[in-house]
Nucleic acid binder design. Structure first.
Lengths: 325, 325
DNA sequence: CAAACCTCTACAATCGTTTGTAAAAAATCA
DNA sequence: TGATTTTTTACAAACGATTGTAGAGGTTTG
């Protein structure tokens, strides 16, 4: 349309004057901002950092900046915090803090504000979400222990108000049932939050209640590491006395002693996918609700082994075989 | 001044209508934004997450929101990225990505944009900074090894373009000299970045070059953990064959095997202090350059022990004593 | 009582874009 | 060519606060 040399001249002049479009003014006029708000419970957890990295990376490649808000220990403030982001005209929200029925989600639905859940989903799918297949992850863990010969398996559960805690507990039960074990007889201790301390506390209770347990599936690596602490207190050995499976495969769990067998989740990938989903919702005004469920993977390390009873049996049977020869 | 009941009525009405001051409009008019930009190299490192948490926590308590930008692998883009933040009218910058002479700092000084360095300082103090006492931290580490009886001590150094890598190497040398050991004779391998892989690589080279080494001071925990990997490859044992001291006391290094002796830095505290400093610079228009240096602390765990030569000597001397009795 | 001064209220300009509209110019058609 | 339609250009309104200013109203003082 316009003389291209003129375009070039204008662009050059703009460059020389250091002219940049003012995003604040543009935002005021349009109501949009090229900003995305991300709500995380707390950054320190190694679960949320890769989610953040992934989401931020993808969004910034698409020209969006991120406004990260830490909801921290104040879930009741979450709506206010989100309100602050919305006042700043964020174009969309990535929510990593959702409870199984979250008022913030209701709010987003009402206001038609594009939003995507990540890591934790709601009970019913009102907006798109990217999660790991928590049920399948636990089944992998249970299968692994059962394959090793364990029959007395306990669960260190996470907070039931989050989908991760809830679904993993459910997956644990399903996994047992699928292998012919009775989930109702399996001991389960519910931790209030995902910390090493809570893991240790739950583990102590579990051992006291059911000393016959030989295998533990934890809802989270930190809980599993807490279980390590509890075992050490009682001078018990993992995996000789009790096998432990974690969940998340967070950094360094391959270096702890014993190296932790765990279920790997690609949190980074969750962040990337959430960013993609949100971008679609923001730009194509695409109201489709999508549920992306990423497949977990069992990583076998040194914290799981056959229970001593099975080892004894094997020894016995192999010696019988030897006798027959 | 005004009838207080009228004030109450107006406030109530505002509340009912859901009126909130529009930060975007205010920002356009005033040029201020109640936003602070934070530049981090990458979020995944356990060094920067607590800094971020600390800074964000303090700032949000003061009514500021944070705009976090990951400079990642693109230091040459740093100025552009910062430009984006400035276009958004950030009131100040917290810079965790500074090299020892950083163009972004020059820019902030010229533009009189309040900014604070954190974790990494510049060579010359042009703006305020909050850092750990890297020199002293290394001296603690060296002292510890020398006290145990080590005389052949090597250093796994970090990137020299960052103050942490540079100063820790310097602190290592000073620490040796203070104990009468010759720093020039001490082997040192410089890692290109703070990763486990680089740590392993450096450690391999160091062992090959100087098999007589009995103690290692690493500039960072990840490098130390990489050294663990290298030792394992060669079937060497820590601390029996070689003692290792890390730096940072990042989460879980107490659980690795052997539990890592390391120099604890309160990164969270650095974040808090940086936030305070920045707030002063922003609000009091306080141009004072302050340098906050936090004291590090040695945390002794299981990765350090007396070298075998010393143990042998002690055994000999104690048996002599026994003879005399 | 008028002049000078101070206080308060109300209004308009401003920040820098985007976007709708009106006018002008160009193009199409009878 | 004149009427009609389309395209281009130019301009102004709007976003929602902040802030300076002019004028109204009140108070003090010679």
């Amino acid at each position: 349309m316009v003389d291209p040399s003129a375009v070039a001249r204008v662009l050059k002049a703009a460059q020389e004057l250091g002219y940049r479009l003012d995003p604040v003014a543009a935002s005021l006029r349009t109501g949009r901002s090229k900003l995305v708000g991300i709500l995380v419970p707390d950054i320190a957890t190694s679960v949320f950092t890769p989610i953040l990295t992934g989401a931020t990376e993808r969004l910034s490649a698409r020209g969006y900046s991120t406004l990260v808000a830490y909801v921290g220990g104040a879930p009741e403030q979450q709506l206010d915090i989100a309100g602050g982001l919305i006042a700043r005209r964020v174009d969309g929200l990535i929510i990593a803090t959702a409870s199984r029925h979250d008022p913030l989600v209701s709010f987003c639905v009402e206001q038609k504000l594009p939003a995507v859940l990540v890591n934790r989903a709601e009970k019913e799918a009102r907006i798109s979400a990217v999660v790991s297949d928590d049920i399948q992850g636990m089944q992998l863990a249970v299968d692994h222990l059962v394959d090793l010969g364990h029959t007395d398996i306990g669960h260190l559960a996470g907070p039931p108000e989050h989908s991760t805690g809830f679904l993993r507990r459910q997956g644990f039960a399903q996994g047992l049932a699928a292998r012919g074990l009775d989930p109702l007889k399996a001991p389960c201790e519910v931790a209030g939050n995902y910390t090493r301390e809570q893991g240790a506390e739950s583990m102590r209770r579990l051992i006291d209640a059911r000393p016959d347990i030989t295998g533990i599936v934890a809802a989270n690596d930190l809980l599993a590491l807490g279980a390590y602490d509890a075992l050490q207190e009682r001078h018990m050995n993992c995996p000789r006395d009790i096998s432990i499976v974690g969940h998340n495969d967070m950094p360094l769990v391959d270096l702890v002693h014993p190296a932790l067998t765990t279920v790997r989740i690609s949190h980074r990938e969750m962040g990337l996918q959430a960013a993609d989903l949100l971008q679609q919702a923001m730009e194509d005004n695409d109201q489709l609700i999508r549920n992306i469920v990423l497949p977990p993977k069992l990583i076998v390390r040194a914290s799981t082994a056959a229970p001593r009873t099975t080892l004894a049996k094997r020894a016995a049977s192999s010696s019988r075989k030897a006798d027959r020869r």
